[in-house]
Amino acid sequence: MDILIYAILSLTFMALIFGAILGYAAKRFKVEGNPIVDQINELLPQTQCGQCGHPGCRPYAEAIANQTDPINLCPPGGDTTIKALADLLDVDALPLDAEAGVDSIRKIAYIREDECIGCTKCIQACPVDAILGAAKQMHTVIVNECTGCDLCVEPCPVDCIDMLPVAVTKQSWHWQKPDHLIATDRQPKLSALGEDAA
């Protein structure tokens, strides 16, 4: 019986001591700022498109860091970004949130210049200053700077901005992943059957 009491007492005592050490360390070595936000921000595609519901990539990074938003709200980043975020934060990768939009091919804004009335609304909307123009003057998009974020389309009162997919060139083209299955892979038809059964 004594032994039991001694064991409990000594373990409690040790727990208190280590707890105190840990508590002190947490205060003493507290990391100022929140570098995780920077790390998350590095992984985001920086289109500043706001499709996640935040005004830009960094606010979304902050929201992820504060765990107020899931990691799957970034359509331009797509699955690659989700995977990278999941790796960084050690959480499960989620499928892209359909409400936030769909992961699609890269697009770039083009202004149909003869229809532009020079209202400057798109200039104000562009997060990366990629639209050139002045009041009552025709505007145009600096193609190399456009991130394809889509934010200029909505404000245009005359609807003269098109989002056009970036053309594939010999340089940007690459081979597709071989699509045929390995003979021992689960065959699509069978898997559909399996899901029905389940």
């Binding site: 003979a183 021992t184 892979d185 689960r186 065959q187 069978l190 898997s191 059957l193 399996g194």
Partner: peptide, 9 residues
């Protein structure tokens, strides 16, 4: 059980 093709194995 794993829903793999049989002819192959």
């Amino acid at each position: 059980l794993r829903q793999r093709p049989l002819g192959f194995f």
